[in-house]
């Protein structure tokens, strides 16, 4: 099985070193979810929710953003120049050594605590 290494910084700043198969047709959002990292993937990977928003910290040659991803990020808060939607990035050997950080939650834990 072909595998690559991906490093993820979660919202508490903790580092997770993932070993990810490249021959299973996964995208990055599905990979993060399968490791039970707190990425919801509400829209199932259709670039329609931004719950998989992350910041790319390493210098990798990633697939270009499509119109849907650009338009979704334009409606998302806390977007930076290295923002990407993880569901739009397919896992390939080119991603060996990728490092990313999860963007803040779309809705804060305590925002609706009186509900």
């Amino acid at each position: 099985m072909n595998e690559i290494n991906i490093t993820v910084i979660d919202r508490q700043g903790d580092q997770h070193d993932l070993k990810v198969p490249t021959d299973m047709g996964l995208n990055l959002m599905e990979t993060l979810k399968s490791y039970e990292l707190p990425v919801e993937g509400i829209c199932g990977g259709m670039a329609m929710c931004a719950s998989c928003h992350c910041y790319i910290l390493s210098d990798h040659d990633l697939p270009e953003q499509g119109h849907d991803e650009i338009a979704m990020l334009d409606e998302t808060d806390e977007v930076e120049s290295n923002s990407r939607l993880a569901c739009q990035i397919q896992i390939t050997n080119k991603l060996e050594g990728l490092k990313l950080e999860l963007a803040p939650e779309l809705v804060g834990e305590d925002e609706f605590s009186d509900w």
């Binding site: 329609m48 929710c49 931004a50 719950s51 409606e75 609706f112 509900w115």
Partner: peptide
């Protein structure tokens, strides 16, 4: 009128 998000609260 931007996206809303579902949360499992309450």
């Amino acid at each position: 009128l931007l996206c809303l998000t579902p949360i499992l609260r309450p």
